[in-house]
Computed example of a mutant assay.
Amino acid sequence: MPLWSRAQQQDFRSRVRGCLLGGAIGDALGAGIEFESLESIRAAHGPAGVTGYVPAYGRAGSVTDDTQMTLFTLDGLIRAHVQRDGGSWHPPTDVHHAYLRWAATQYDWGPDERKGDLGWLGRQEWLYAQRAPGQACLSGLTGPDAERPGTLEAPRNPESKGCGTVMRAAPFGLLTAWEPGLVFQLAVECSVLTHGHPTGYLSAGAFAVIVHTVARGGTLEEGVHLALATLSDHPGHEETTTALRKALDAVRAGEPSAERVEELGQGWVAEEALAIGVYCALVAHDVKSGLLLAVNHSGDSDSTGVVCGSLLGALHGETALPPELLAELEGRGTMLELADDFVLELLHGPELRGPAWSERYPVK
């Protein structure tokens, strides 16, 4: 890692925090309307649809499995960097172990029931909650064969291209010292741990590249075009490429609207969630307007909100996020602490080695 100025470090920290919190806000905005049609959303909340949090899972501002898995992705990446300093370096393995820890939170009552290398994140009791987890994520990470990670040669759920690959992939794009091609490849290799269809894992790779571009100070448009160029080198890219091109066409088609969002799909599959999130981020006047556009549609509102919010947060940083939505966001303190730990590890890893850091991020 080259030496960064203080201003560069502060900018990076703001973008990491913004990406994580922005995605979570989008998730929470969509959580209460995830399975509703646009017609029913408008009937219940008015012509503009929802304009703030709708209670879900017992409170306003609740997040879903999308944010849960994103946090464990970041945890896995931190541990991978700790491992590297010890002479071991295979990030997909560390991310796989992190996802196994997430899967346990879906069945255990809490951290007191568990043994092993939970680390700091695994001891956060609020994460022990089922929030409509995707079946491909669960089936890929549970059962007698769960310890065997999926690979590109032998992926888990080879027919699945659900949006569970995309909604958790933003953290790969925060590896700003990496080259875009390596970020894309890592996102792909971590997607096949649960989703093996090319459209699923290539959509995750494309999303990571777009996040990576804006986290490095580029524009969303530059990120999308780089993602398209990267996709063109990979077999099976056609559905993802077509979806992203439709998103770009929608930007040029006229005034943004929920109806235009619905022309891109419903977001249940990876390429549609990516296209909707990218479109809403591209046409957003500000973060809140983009997020509300991303969730007010008939479909997987929380996942499209995550994609849009992650992009806008990485683009503008944490100070651009709506303060009234931040204040009610479930788990905000955990997210801020994890984001700051990620920044510390990437910028100052060797200085952190010691018992306290090893307890937070133990390695096998």
Rank of each mutant, 00 (worst) to 15 (best):
L329Y: 11
E39G: 06
T242I: 09
H285P: 01
D233C: 08
Y53S: 07
E189F: 03
E125K: 14
S303M: 13
R101M: 13
K161T: 09
T319A: 12
L264Q: 06
D286Y: 08
R156Q: 02
A103Y: 01
K246G: 06
E324V: 12
Y201A: 01
V183M: 09
L312P: 13
A43P: 04
G236L: 11
A154E: 01
H195G: 02
S40Y: 13
P322E: 04
A170P: 08
S358N: 13
L325M: 13
A208Y: 01
G58N: 12
D65N: 10
P323N: 06
H234C: 07
A60L: 13
V211A: 04
P92Q: 05
R123A: 05
R15H: 14
H45N: 08
G61V: 03
D286Q: 05
Q124E: 15
H237D: 08
E345R: 15
L228H: 09
T67L: 07
G254P: 15
L118N: 10
H225W: 12
V192N: 00
H97T: 05
C163L: 11
D27F: 05
P47L: 08
V283G: 07
R168W: 06
G52W: 02
G277A: 03
Y99Q: 06
T240C: 09
W178P: 08
A206I: 02
T194D: 01
Q135H: 11
A339K: 13
E153S: 14
Q185I: 04
E238V: 11
L336K: 01
H297A: 05
P355K: 07
A247W: 09
S203L: 11
E351K: 12
R123P: 06
E39M: 06
L346C: 05
Q9R: 10
G23E: 05
Q266H: 11
L100F: 01
N157T: 00
A208Q: 02
Q124D: 07
G76H: 06
R168N: 03
A281M: 04
T304G: 00
P171K: 10
H234G: 03
G32N: 01
V261N: 04
R156N: 00
D300V: 08
Q135M: 09
V251T: 13
A104S: 11
E337Y: 05
A270D: 12
R260H: 07
V82M: 15
P92M: 03
S289Q: 15
I41C: 08
P158Y: 02
R260W: 07
L291H: 13
M335H: 12
A339C: 12
V278D: 08
